[in-house]
Design a protein around this nucleic acid. Sequence first.
DNA 1: CGCTGAACTTAGAATCCCCTAG
DNA 2: CTAGGGGATTCTAAGTTCAGCG
Length: 867
Amino acid sequence: MAVEASDKPHVSDGFDDDDDGPVIFKRSTTSKRNVQGSNAPTSNAQGSSLPKGKIIPSGMVLPKKSSEGISRASTSHVKAYLVNPPIAKPSSERKILSDAKEESSSIIHLTKNNWEDSEDELDNKPLSARLKVNSNNANKATFAVVKKSSEDSDNVDDDDDIPLSARLKNCNFGTSSSKYDNSNQKKPISKVHKGSHDGFNASIKQERPSTLSVKRPLDNTDSLHSSIKKPKLSVLDASISDKKVSMKLEPKVEDDDIDDVPFSQRMKKLSESSSLKKSKNIIKVNKAGSSFKKQATKFKSFSNNSEYSKSTKLLPSSGDGQKKWTTLVHNGVIFPPPYQPHGVKMLYKGKPVVLTPEQEEVATMFAVMRDTDYMQKDKFKENFWTDWGKLLGKNNVIQNLDDCDFTPIYDWCQSEKEKKKQMSSEEKKALKEERAKLEEKYMWAIVDGVKEKVGNFRVEPPGLFRGRGEHPKMGKLKRRIRPNDITINIGKDAPIPECPIPGESWKDIRHDDTVTWLAFWNDPINPKLFKYVFLAASSSLKGQSDKEKYEKARMLKDYIGNIRAAYTKDFTCRDITKQQIAVATYLIDKLALRAGNEKDDDEADTVGCCTLKIENVTPEAPNKLQFNFLGKDSIKYENTVEVELPVYNAILKFQNDKQPGNDLFDMLDTSKLNAHLKELMPGLTAKVFRTFNASITLDDMLNKDTKDGDVAEKIVVYNHANKQVAIICNHQRSVSKSHTAQMSRLTEKIDELQAVLNELKTDLDRARKGKPPLKSSDGKTKKNLNPEALEKKIAQTTTKIQKMQRDMNAKEDLKTVALGTSKINYLDPRITVAWCKRHEVPIEKIFNKSLLAKFAWAMDVDPDFRF
DNA sequence: CGCTGAACTTAGAATCCCCTAG
DNA sequence: CTAGGGGATTCTAAGTTCAGCG
């Protein structure tokens, strides 16, 4: 370990004495020390390699039955989640309490904000939720007294955001704002509810991938029918002043110079300051109340630091060119071990061939691909041969791939695999530990004094490129990456990681605090692309931007009515570009399509919205569109959907006079589309619609479908909602190879059980008549059971059969649906956490360890939270 | 304004690993 | 005790977005 001597923060005592949460180091400005290798006395739940024990992921909420259960739960295990690392001065880094909190009574503040929140969001909530508001506020008020400041902060947090976005909304749409708000109030509740997404979900067919008729509430949205005008820039000035007024309630947010900047930048500033407020730090609180006090005191001392406000000015939103960190310490990356030649000879025209280690290495890469689909693809073999041929050299005996037989190598690899499998568990464990030891120091970085997990600290090993779909480069050799390929990014004062390969050195060292990567290298397959080493998803840097992503999506909720109204108007616009933008936006909104950037010829031929070809959309009279294209990862998108007639007609028009292969939206690309979206809402881009769509669908379905019942039933509801989202987003997975076999095995078992059941029924009949049971199928005599016992058995068997049937159906149902992707990337975790709190579902039933760590920032959300 | 480079999120497959049924 | 099923984790490809440049 080269580094540790130089830069080690002191582990702060008492600050972080427990288990989970990022380790926090209090550091003296003068002597910083490095941590890794010290094996961080404070273990960290985020380290998957660490002893599992009981992980209390970050303020994890385990809804208790106790009366105070739900509300208390949210406050009692709040974890130190430092959402805002990049605070300039170390001394202020640990400042967790915002001054705002200090200055205002948290109770009053809290209550007020919650109240505002409810008001604000009311019209988006179903009646049930509205009715709840009162009691929930009361609830809050009672425990606000004991609330940890962390909770306060987060509440302030969440609530803060809403008024801001609402303000933006109101101002943005100026005169219409009051109408907007009122209109919902005047509406019958049912209509209000309709404004969200039920119409959509209700009509999604379960089966896929065939023609889902996806219908969105879009058509029902009141704003569509109202006369709300397309937002004009001019009204936005109002927004600024409006905002300023309300901002005064929130000390510390500086927006002084905002008047002098152009509109676009103002809006940016707004979003920045919003994210700023958003990211108020959360305190870690131990389950034990006593340690909380200790911590709170500590935090207080930080919080008086006037540096805070200054440094917040530098805070990034996830936006760019902004400072992301102040200090960054890490150990670089770890390289795969050098190739170990095995000496197994492949055959060429039936004869063994001696290969150099380099040639053998690549041959082995190919050999082990035998069982994959790539072997059926000529492109793969062709590309492989091109690259391997170069290594072999012109005069090699091997002159073509067809005469190569890699079987010996393949077999050798298989047997090695087998050997590994056969190892005793102790041996395996020892091996694992060894590896862990080796990697330990690379696993962590210290960002602004907080120990954070690094995501992909292992340099990608050499291999054959496995592009998805019909990728033109599949099979090419991905050469080994050397230190000389790698640029390291690290804090100015941090020791430069020692290059782990003796005699070699890093390509470059940078100290760029506007980016979050720790290292990068050029992708050997496509040198103009980069491979980055980032922090893990559980890091606060990632958590912060994740939260911002969801806040942005929530903001869209306030704009969506007007946006829909605007594009609906443009469906018939004579300006073709505008018309195309309108239709494209409609598709993105309604179908959650991706933006669709242009792609190079050396990539797989896939499309998104803007790059749809005319053959990807087939109109079906009178007003249906059939979509069929390959999207990201060459995943097939097949969907037939009813659209508004003007859209249908517009599509017909766009297709007119075009050849297959031509762009449907020929006047459009993602930058134009996004530029337009940005005019409608600050920070709005195409992808926000996907997040919005997914999250609001979950929120809606959970709140519509959750019934009283046991936890298992509630989980079914959750999974069902999750599945709908996955279908909307077209998240697919390949059917496992053994699926068919598994299904028939299950069928078999069910049949067997059914036979048993029938036999039992016969026996019961006979038993009731006082007759002994018949001989069993294998001819043995059975015990003479009384009718009660038989009935019991019958009931058991029936239950068993039903369960198996259910499992089987679910399995079949989900065989092509990937639930995980939306959970990880699209569903605002606060929806889930809040729902769990409300319905006393343990959060671990929904989020696994990684997700709990990733969503640490969402754990202390108010149970009333709605997306 | 379009193009490219850069940085970051999103994605499915592969692999690991742990549990359970037999 | 062991196979295999399935969830968790790892891996890295494939997207989106944005800034900066000419």
